[in-house]
Amino acid sequence: MEALEWIGTLPFAVAIRRSALLYLFVNAAHILSIGIIVGAILPLDLRLIGFFGKVPVPAVGPYLSRAAATGVILAVVTGFCLFSVRPLEYAGNAAFLTKITLLALGIVNAVLLHVTPQWRAAVKGGPLSWRVRLSALLSMAVWIGAVLAGRWIGFLSE
């Protein structure tokens, strides 16, 4: 509880809370970050489960993975800034907790995939194994779920 209260007193949290314009820009940056994640992950996941077979995985896999990782980093930073405005309220919000859980699951899934020999083979033009396809299916479900949970946050805090 004390840590949450402390987060709310951080200088950037106070600044965002006091300025509607700053809040608007941080919120917009968060939404754009989510767009980067979804815009990179969904096409990659669809390709990995077998759609768009003419698109070479070695050409799009590394690029879309890096784009998604950039989006995740930006979303975490901007999301933390938004969280800091009302940390006690968000920490008790079921939708927020669901979103954070799904975010962590999505990151773990991506990291575990990227360290496998199956991923390395796929980005070198090798076959798409069941492990890669299963990870892509999980990824799609998790990231879509995280977006839905994020939209749900506002409905539970009203």
Rank of each mutant, 00 (worst) to 15 (best):
K99H: 09
K54Y: 11
P43R: 07
L48F: 05
R86S: 13
I107R: 08
K99T: 08
A67V: 12
S129L: 08
V108E: 12
V123G: 03
G71N: 10
L82S: 08
L97N: 15
A121V: 06
V60I: 15
V111H: 07
A68I: 06
L82Y: 01
L82T: 09
K99W: 05
V60M: 07
T78R: 00
W119H: 03
P58M: 10
R120G: 09
G61Q: 08
G92T: 04
V77C: 08
R86Y: 06
V123E: 14
V123I: 15
N93L: 06
L134W: 09
F83H: 09
I73V: 15
V38Y: 07
F52M: 11
R120V: 07
P117N: 13
A69L: 08
V38F: 07
P127N: 06
N93I: 04
R131C: 00
V77D: 09
L74A: 14
R66G: 07
P43I: 13
K99R: 10
G106T: 09
A67P: 04
V38L: 15
A121T: 09
S65Y: 06
P87I: 09
G39P: 03
P56F: 00
G61R: 02
V76R: 00
I73W: 08
F83S: 06
L97M: 10
W130V: 14
V132H: 00
L113K: 04
L134F: 14
I49E: 12
F51T: 11
A69P: 02
I36D: 10
